[in-house]
Design a protein around this nucleic acid. Structure first.
Length: 469
RNA sequence: GCCCCGAUGGUGUAGUGGCCUAUCAUGCAGCCCUGUCGAGGCUGCGACCCGGGUUCAAAUCCCGGUCGGGGCGCCA
C-alpha cells in the first residue's frame, strides 16, 4: 500500500486509512472520517463488521445498531462488495484475535467505531472480476474490466512500481544533465520506413501517428539542447500478436550531443542500475505484494538484484559465434532472433549489450566508421541493442551527423532524401556528433515485476484486437 | 501472414457419446450464529459460444463461423 503519511485531508476524509493504521496509538480515542471500498461486510444482527480499503491501507469499521441512525446501519449491512462508503467514528483498539496456546500475540490493531457515515456509490453485484477472490481470471476478462482489476493488490502494486521506475529513470537522467522534451505524435511522412504507420486525417491532409520520437529528438539535439529525453507513446501498425508487442507503447528515449554509442550505453546502464537500486531500497514492500500473489499461483518469487556494472558487451560478431557454438543456425548478417537470444542468455543471464551490428541491418540514421568491418568483412555500424534474456529492451546507437552520408544511406535503403528535408536540413549548418537510445518501458517492467506479458504492466493496452476500454 | 490449441453459471474449472435433471471452488440471495477477522454453519440461484451435420442418443464426434490462448514471423 502507498505511503500516505504526508497526504492532506480532503472533502471526503480527515485521514487516509493508511494514516489511521500506522498512527493508531496517537489517534486512539479521536474521531476520524475515512472513505473506501467495502471489501467485506459481515454480520447480520445487531453488529456489523465492514472491511474498508482505500489506496493506502485497509481497516475494519465496527458498527453497532444502537450507535447510529438505523437507516445507515441497514444500508451498510446490505452494501455489496466494492461499494464506496464513508464512515466517521473514534479510533479504537480492536479486540485481539484468539490465538492458539503458545502462539505469539500479534501487535495491536485499530478499527473505527462508527457513529455516522454514508454510502457514496453502491456497487453492482456480482462483480465481473472479483477483487479479493482467489479464483484465477483470464487476462482478457481482466483487461475488459481493468478498472476493477487494478483494485487487486498485486495489480495495483505493479502500477505503483511502474510509476517508480519512471520516476527513478527521470531522476537519474536529470542528474546527468538531460532535459525532458515532448515531440509531435502527428507526423506528415513515413518518417523512417521499416514499419507500418497508422494513417490519419489531419484536416485536409494525410498524416500518421508517430512510430518513434527518433528524428525529432535528434533535431532537438542539433538545435543545441545538448541532452534530451522523452517518455512518450509510439504507434506501430504491425500485426504482431505476442507477449512483448503492442501497437501503442511508451518509449523511454534519450539523445545526447558529443556522445557516441559507448557513451550512451554508459548512461543506460547507470540509469538501470539507479532504478534497480532505488526499487531495492525503497519499494521492497511492493515487490512483496507481487510475490504474495505469485506464491498463490505457484510461481517463483521475483527478486530485485541490482545488476553490476558494466553490463557485458557482446559485439554482434561474437554473438553470432556464441549462437553457432550453441547449436543455432545463423550466419553473419542474419538477425538474432528470440530463440538465438535464448542461447546467448544462457551464457549471459541478466542485462547485456549487443553492440556493432552490421550496417545493412540498421536504419539510415545510424553512424558507421568506414574502417570497422565485421568478421565476414561486412560494414559494421555503431548501433546496439540491450537485451535481457530473450527480450530486446533497447535499440540505440551513435547517429550519423554527416549530411551527405545520411542522404547516401537514405538512397541506399530505397528512400528519397527529398522526403526527409525536414530532418536532413537540421544537419546542414553544423551538427554535433550524437547518440541515443529508446527503451521499451513495459519490457523493462516485465523484467522487474516478473510479468509474463507486457499487457500486465500497461493500464489500457492497445493490441491488434483491442482498442477498448 | 503461418502453425498449434481452446470456448461449460458472474469468475475459474471437472466432464472424451447414454451414468449430465452437468462437478467443484468462488460469487450471488436468504437464514442461523457471532467482536467477527482467510469467520463459521445451513438452504437456495446461476452455465454447455453460434449455425449446420452424424447418431436411437451430442457438452462430448464432424463441418463452417465467431471469439480467445500459445508459438513463430513481421517489427529501430
Amino acid at each position: 500500500m502507498r505511503d500516505s503519511s504526508s497526504w492532506h485531508p480532503t472533502a471526503y476524509r480527515t485521514h487516509t486509512i493508511g494514516q489511521v493504521v500506522s498512527n493508531g496509538e496517537e489517534l486512539e480515542g479521536k474521531e476520524v472520517t475515512v472513505a473506501g471500498y467495502a471489501e467485506t461486510v459481515r454480520g447480520r444482527g445487531a453488529i456489523c463488521f465492514l472491511m474498508l480499503r482505500d489506496g493506502t491501507g485497509q481497516i475494519q469499521a465496527f458498527l453497532k445498531r444502537d450507535n447510529m441512525d438505523e437507516s445507515l446501519f441497514e444500508s451498510v449491512q446490505s452494501a455489496t462488495r466494492e461499494t464506496t462508503i464513508q464512515v466517521t467514528g473514534k479510533v479504537a483498539k480492536k479486540r485481539p484475535p484468539k490465538v492458539a496456546e503458545g502462539e505469539p500475540i500479534p501487535p495491536p490493531e485499530f478499527e473505527v467505531n462508527v457513529v455516522s457515515g454514508a454510502i457514496l456509490a453502491m456497487a453492482a453485484a456480482p462483480l465481473p472480476v472479483g477483487v479479493t477472490d482467489e479464483v484465477n481470471v483470464g487476462l482478457d476478462v481482466r483487461l475488459d474490466n481493468r478498472h476493477l482489476d487494478v483494485r487487486r493488490a498485486h495489480v495495483n502494486a505493479m502500477f505503483q512500481l511502474r510509476s517508480k521506475v519512471l520516476q527513478y529513470g527521470r531522476e537519474h537522467l536529470i542528474s546527468e544533465g538531460f532535459q525532458e522534451i515532448n515531440s509531435p505524435k502527428i507526423i506528415a511522412a513515413a518518417a523512417e520506413g521499416g514499419t507500418n504507420l497508422f494513417p490519419m486525417k489531419y484536416f485536409e491532409t494525410d498524416a500518421y501517428l508517430s512510430q518513434s520520437p527518433q528524428l525529432y529528438k535528434q533535431l532537438a539535439v542539433l538545435g543545441g539542447l545538448e541532452r534530451v529525453f522523452e517518455i512518450g507513446p509510439a504507434f506501430r501498425a504491425e500485426k504482431h500478436d505476442t507477449y512483448r508487442h503492442l501497437n501503442e507503447f511508451v518509449s523511454f528515449d534519450i539523445e545526447g550531443a558529443w556522445m557516441d554509442d559507448d557513451d550512451v550505453m554508459g548512461v543506460q546502464e547507470r540509469m538501470i542500475h539507479h532504478i534497480w537500486s532505488c526499487v531495492s531500497s525503497n519499494d521492497q514492500a511492493l515487490i512483496d505484494v507481487v510475490n504474495e500473489y505469485r506464491a498463490s499461483q505457484g510461481k517463483e518469487p521475483v527478486t530485485v538484484e541490482v545488476p553490476s556494472m558494466p553490463f557485458p558487451r557482446i559485439p554482434y560478431c561474437d554473438a553470432i559465434e556464441i549462437v553457432k557454438q550453441g547449436g543455432g543456425d545463423i550466419e553473419w548478417g542474419d538477425d538474432i532472433e528470440s530463440h538465438h537470444c535464448d542461447i546467448i542468455a544462457a551464457k549471459h543471464p541478466g542485462f547485456h549489450f549487443i553492440p556493432r551490428w552490421p550496417m545493412s541491418m540498421k536504419p539510415f540514421y545510424i553512424h558507421h566508421k568506414e574502417e570497422e568491418k565485421g568478421s565476414s568483412g561486412g560494414q559494421l555500424s555503431r548501433g546496439f541493442d540491450l537485451n535481457y534474456g530473450r527480450d530486446e529492451m533497447t535499440s540505440g546507437g551513435a547517429r550519423e551527423h554527416r549530411v551527405e552520408i545520411l542522404e547516401e544511406n537514405l538512397r541506399g535503403m530505397g528512400l528519397d532524401p527529398a522526403d526527409f528535408t525536414f530532418y536532413t536540413d537540421g544537419f546542414r549548418y553544423g551538427a554535433p556528433p550524437h547518440a541515443g537510445w529508446g527503451l521499451g518501458v513495459a519490457r523493462l517492467l516485465m523484467v522487474l515485476t516478473g510479468a509474463g506479458n507486457v499487457r500486465e504492466v500497461v493500464l489500457f493496452p492497445r493490441d491488434r484486437s483491442r482498442v477498448t476500454p
